[in-house]
Amino acid sequence: MSLPARLVRRGDLHSLAAPYALDALDPAERVRFEKHLGSCRRCAAEVRALAEDAVRLAWSTAAPAPAVLRDRVLAAVRATPQDPAPRETVRARAAPLPPHVRGAAPLPRARERRRAPLFVPFATATAAAALVVASLFAVQADRTQDRLDAERDRSREIAHVLAAPDARASSGRDARGRTIGVIASASEGSAIVTLGGYDDPPNGRVRQLWLMRPGAGPRSLGLFESDTPLVASGLEESATSLAVTVEPDGGSPRPTGRPVVQLALKTVGFGE
């Protein structure tokens, strides 16, 4: 490319600063311009100033958010680990936490909260969501990035269930006080299921979750890993209940023993 052509091209890129600040570039241009920004200090400063100007346009738009949004966001936040800080800003913070700790904030009261009486009917799905999900993201110092990623994916799935307009919660308790909790959306066909108060299954055994359906055998929804919640999707609206059995390692195609706990799904909108 000749020098004048290059200058024109560069001038052309510069002129995109204002549209960029207004989010008025199409994706390809956005990428091209951001690449340019990385190598052009002057542009970066200019874009920052223009972006501050653009944000002022938002001042005129504030409107009270619906109350239900608050419930949803706060419940989702409880189920969502945080991203670690980018390296360069970690140093700037007072007493920074190591990234793996930052990745999932400790919830000191969560465990006590889970011991709250579960027979009390839940006022809202989100109140139950906080209860069921909160304790499950306690700090584990040995988390790997893969694990964090997997958890983040799971958190997104959880947030998705919580955000469903028909998300409802229910819980049950067996004679020994052990609990099963579910937050489910019949319209999404998805559910978050969690167990409480259970010891680890004996060596070589796992707890498996089943969906009970009329006119069909139980369908496996997956295996519980210690006390992390199971997110199940593709649930038929005709499903009647959830059941947990103890199975040989790796799970079984069909339940081989009696359920250790069972929970009807009618109250969360299924079976109709």
């Binding site: 504030a62 958010a65 936040v77 904030a105």
Partner: peptide
């Protein structure tokens, strides 16, 4: 950023209106 839930609730109170209003607009 340090995982403080209470701070988030407070922050929510400050920013939810501007955020929702802008998105709605």
């Amino acid at each position: 950023a340090g995982g403080d839930h209470q701070a988030f609730e407070e922050l929510y109170g400050l920013v939810s209106g501007p955020v929702y209003g802008l998105v709605r607009r």
